[in-house]
Write a protein that binds this DNA or RNA. Structure first.
Length: 416
RNA sequence: GUGGCCAUAGUUCAGUCGGUUAGAACGCCAGGUUGUGGCCCUGGAGGUCGUGGGUUCAAAUCCCACUGGUCACCCCA
């Protein structure tokens, strides 16, 4: 019997974690500098939370969630995204009562049962942020600028920012009606998928990648032509702020996100470095969601980004993260010195020095090879002779220089 | 959920028209005159050829099913 990780899940191995940790550090740095604080929520929630927020008719809720009954019969779902949980926590803990604007971020695993593919796993990792309590376009742009800053710091430049406004509860229904009527005229020529969407979610038809659909809908009215004054003003403000901050973007009037809760601003960042799963990050405003989930009417805006897709680009670029290496490797030249080496290695560690020694009773040559493989900065060879004289040769494994040091002062050498 | 391609040492891959003890490189282990790594040299360990069935005197090789991987559709991070 051989056990394997579940289809679509992956081990992140010791050889890969340095790159993850490096990226995570930069992500956290940027969040901190933009003054977003981390929130950690459970990875599972009651199923209704996701159904209500993401939308019953979305693909995510309809066919991708890991939903099961626990032993007491409650319907539980592994979170497919982070916003719903963050807002649930915001409401449950009354975060809005003590602060007018809550700026939070998260980073962790998400779960969707899709067919695995390049850049698409069943357990994957997202980082994202939410600014809950602000209706302003300035906040939208802060979220977008922060997202881009992360990629910029990681040396990623090959991306495109697309933005759109999907309107609000007043102007979107009006537009949907107009679009639906237009689509019905050519319904029989559209792809099957698109035909199904005309009634439930006509805007998604415009986002279809089917070439025939694209051609048929080429001249259709866009949401951006039907925005009411408020949404229009908000959208204009977002665009002018982006320009003011020298952030390049393209307006895509057909951009619709796969989650139903967005209002006004929606955006997506894609990269040509990825395969067909080219979305690096996406987000937008959700002014109705907090109320929808049982809180007070509270506007908000946020984004989510995929860790694995970020990793794919960093790996492709051949980015080398700093590796974890011992400061010193203590080698025992003979069996009489092994006890001293073990004891001293332990002592150095308790003083905050990364020290390593051989645990496999290996030959001196093997120990030196190990020191080299571990990329230790120094090696110290100690045998009976050194124990007697109280001094040994400390070798710098990078520049190959050597020096004689007193065994009693070894700790000071590394702590000064 | 649908389709294409793929599955041989730890890893990346060879393996002829089906033919006898399945190879290479890298990695790993041990040595290279009795106490110093990286390069080099020598030797060694390591594979029920994804699983199950079928065809055949004979299957890593041909056929089928299953499982897994991968890429695309779809969807999205």
């Amino acid at each position: 019997m051989n056990y394997r990780s579940i289809k679509g899940t992956k081990d992140i191995l010791p050889s890969e974690t340095p790159l993850w940790q490096y990226a995570e550090q930069i992500i956290r740095d940027v969040f901190r500098q933009f003054n977003y604080k981390e929130i950690r929520t459970p990875v599972f929630e009651t199923t209704a939370l996701f159904a209500r927020s993401i939308g019953e008719l979305t693909d995510i809720v309809g066919k991708e969630m890991y939903t099961f009954q626990d032993r007491s019969g409650d319907s539980i779902t592994l979170r497919p995204e982070g916003t719903a949980s963050a807002l649930r926590a915001y409401i449950q803990n009354n975060l809005g009562e003590s602060l007018p604007l809550s700026k939070v971020y998260y980073i962790g695993p998400m779960f969707r049962q899709e067919r695995p593919q390049a850049g698409r796993l069943r357990q994957f990792h997202q980082f994202g942020a939410e600014a809950i309590g602000s209706p302003t376009a300035e906040t939208d742009v802060e979220i977008i600028a922060m997202t881009l800053e992360i990629y910029k710091r990681l040396g990623i430049t090959n991306y495109t920012l697309q933005i759109n406004s999907v309107g609000d509860e007043e102007c979107r229904p009006r537009y949907k009606e107009v679009l639906r009527n237009e689509l019905l005229k050519i319904a029989d020529k559209l792809s099957g998928e698109s035909q199904k969407r005309i009634e439930q979610n006509p805007m998604r038809v415009l986002d279809s990648k089917d070439e025939n659909d694209k051609a048929l809908t080429a001249g259709m009215p866009l949401i951006t032509d039907y925005l009411n004054d408020e949404c229009q003003a908000h959208f204009e403000r977002v665009k002018s702020l982006l320009s003011a901050y020298s952030i390049p973007f393209t307006v895509n009037g057909r951009l619709v996100r796969g989650l139903d809760y967005y209002t006004k601003t929606a955006f997506e960042i894609t990269s040509t470095e990825l395969g067909s799963q080219d979305a690096l990050a996406g987000g937008g405003r959700y002014d109705l969601l907090v109320k929808e989930l049982g809180g007070k009417q509270t506007p908000g805006v946020g984004f989510a980004a995929g860790m694995e897709r970020l990793m794919m680009i960093l790996e492709k670029k051949g980015f080398q993260p700093p590796v974890q290496r011992p400061t010193v490797f203590l080698a025992a030249a003979d069996d009489k010195a092994r006890d001293w080496v073990l004891k001293t290695t332990m002592m150095l560690r308790t003083k905050g020095i990364a020290a390593e020694c051989d645990l496999l009773s290996r030959s001196l040559k093997s120990q030196m090879k190990e020191a080299d493989r571990q990329q230790a900065k120094y090696s110290l060879v100690v045998g009976s002779m050194e124990l007697e004289t109280g001094s040994a040769v400390l070798k710098n494994l990078t520049d190959h220089s050597q020096q004689q040091i007193q065994l009693g002062t070894i700790e000071q050498f590394f702590t000064r």
